[in-house]
């Protein structure tokens, strides 16, 4: 771990992460503001008319609680796809581009081991994701308190958010591993990012179609179930644990490759 590099990478990540956070904040404010048990009923009606479309975007659960509303409209789609975008931007900025353009040479020209360089990158990623999580949780709680005091099940929200963080770690691990493993810059960025996108797409398709539920069996992103997490179900918590541990393992694998590979910088 290099503190100097960590601080520099954090600072360098602020802008792009800030933009993602701002977009998420906009969604949060809108969705919380839109919550109204009566409107929720009419939204339920929409869900009932187009169940497939809503299912594809992970918004298929009719609900009349504020937490259910948030889980339905934010935790299924917005909070998974946009953070994936952020992960790809960060990994590209820290690992893929510096190796491709050659500026990694300067980091390797300092008395810092490759192990600590890679760990610093992984830790920066995990920290930025944690910061993003803190922002969106705080904002949801604050908005809920402002518009509907006392209506939000904060504990449920925290549980779902912890599970979501594990999913983010998993996505981050895939992208980080791919960034470390591939020589070609485009492949390094898109093998991991593309795989994550593909998993989400498969999840969308599987949620819609009948008879193709088998697709859900082998898709790791299915391990993340915000409703079950909010309800505190043990299975869901365990599954999220699997996601989180896998994410860390993927980052460790990426680190191992980073330490051994040739860098033509």
């Amino acid at each position: 771990m290099s503190t100097t590099l960590f601080l520099k990478e954090l600072k360098g990540s602020l802008f792009s992460s800030g933009v993602i956070a701002a977009v998420l904040a906009l969604y949060i404010v809108c969705i919380v503001y839109m919550f109204d048990p009566e409107i929720a009923e009419s939204l339920d009606l929409i869900i009932a008319t187009m169940p497939e479309l809503c299912a594809a975007f992970g918004m298929a659960n009719a609900t009349d609680t504020l937490l259910g509303f948030l889980l339905n409209y934010l935790y299924g789609f917005v909070f998974t796809w946009l953070p994936l975008l952020m992960i790809m931007i960060l990994v590209n900025r820290m690992v893929v581009r510096p190796i491709d353009r050659g500026s990694m040479a300067y980091l390797l020209a300092s008395p810092t081991s490759r192990l600590s360089l890679a760990l610093t990158f992984a830790l920066t990623l995990a920290t930025m994701l944690a910061a993003l999580m803190a922002v969106i949780v705080a904002l949801q709680v604050a908005c809920a308190e402002a518009f509907f005091p006392g209506d939000l099940d904060v504990e449920g929200l925290l549980q779902a958010s912890a599970g979501l963080y594990c999913l983010w770690l998993f996505l981050g691990g895939l992208c980080f591993l791919s960034a470390c493993a591939f020589k070609d810059a485009r492949l390094a960025l898109w093998a991991g990012g593309g795989l994550c996108l593909a998993l989400f797409l498969v999840q969308m398709v599987a949620g819609v179609g009948e008879g193709i539920e088998v697709l859900q069996t082998f898709n790791p992103v299915e391990l993340y179930d915000p409703y079950a997490l909010a309800a505190g179900e043990d299975d869901a918590v365990g599954n999220s644990g699997i996601l989180g541990v896998s994410g860390i393992a993927l980052m460790a694998a990426g680190t191992a490759i980073f330490c051994r590979r040739d860098m033509n910088v």
């Binding site: 040479a105 390797l108 020209a109 300092s110 008395p111 810092t112 081991s113 490759r114 910088v265």
Partner: peptide
């Protein structure tokens, strides 16, 4: 042993 060496080395790419 790159990290050890780099403590004593200046490099211009």
């Amino acid at each position: 042993q790159r990290a050890q060496i780099q403590g004593h080395l200046g490099y211009l790419p």
